[in-house]
Design a protein around this nucleic acid. Structure first.
Length: 221
DNA sequence: AAAACGGGGGC
DNA sequence: GCCCCAGTTTT
């Protein structure tokens, strides 16, 4: 009983901290609205983005879809052609294969419609929790928290979670982050992680939310 | 839980 | 050349 109360109180404090942080990030960055919310293209773009920087993802995605207009054309394309088009995303052989496989599965089993639920998305080859959550958020605007390396590392630095695995991070974040912030969270944290809160040598001296950060307060004060 | 997998780009 | 980087799959 007492345990429940103190835990819930603790969560409220953390939620308050999260809200302050997210408000700051919102001031700092422009939300990158996906100009294209077409579920198929979001799915393919997200697969191409795995372990890959934005610029290279964009290049590969644009090259692919400037040649092929829709899922049918991608599914029918020779694998070598897809490989060439998505080369700049890296891991291009695996990704080209998965893009083709995924396209065929969606055509054969889902009538060409990308599934809009976690269970079916996870059954697609090359789609894990992060990619599935990206599709849910960016294409279907369902509240979810895609946890990539940034979204795993940074909340741990802030001290709002203390987790070893991305799965655990997602679980903990869903408990303490107000639901209305879920959709924006990944994009804002990723931008923050690319510019200031980098994996190595974070720019804490320039960080506008250092005062809210456990990592900074532990290491620099 | 940890290792394997798998390439471009920056320096 | 070396090292980093918006994961997924297999052991």
């Amino acid at each position: 009983m007492g345990d429940y109360i103190s835990k819930s109180k603790n969560n409220n404090n953390l939620s308050f901290k999260v809200e302050k942080i997210m408000k700051e990030l919102n001031n700092l960055y422009t939300l990158r609205v996906f100009e294209d919310r077409d579920p198929y293209r979001v799915l393919i773009r997200t697969i191409l983005s795995q372990r890959t920087k934005d610029a290279n993802t964009d290049k590969a995605t644009n090259q692919l879809f400037s040649k092929y207009k829709d899922i049918h054309e991608v599914a029918d394309a020779p694998i070598e052609d897809i490989e060439k088009l998505v080369k700049s995303a890296g891991f291009f052989r695996v990704k080209a294969n998965r893009i083709k496989e995924v396209s065929h599965i969606i055509l054969d089993y889902y009538g060409g419609i990308v599934p809009n639920n976690m269970k079916e998305l996870l059954e697609l080859p090359g789609v894990g929790r992060k990619t599935a959550n990206c599709v849910l958020v960016f294409a279907f605007q369902e509240p979810a928290i895609p946890v990539d390396t940034h979204v795993h590392r940074i909340p741990n630095r802030w001290g709002i979670v203390n987790t070893k695995t991305p799965e655990k991070t997602e679980e903990e974040l869903m408990k303490i982050v107000p639901k209305n912030l879920w959709i924006d969270m990944n994009d804002l944290i990723v931008q923050f992680g690319q510019t200031i809160c980098r994996p190595l040598n974070p720019l804490c001296e320039e960080c506008p939310i250092a005062d809210l950060c456990d990592y900074y307060n532990t290491n620099f004060l």
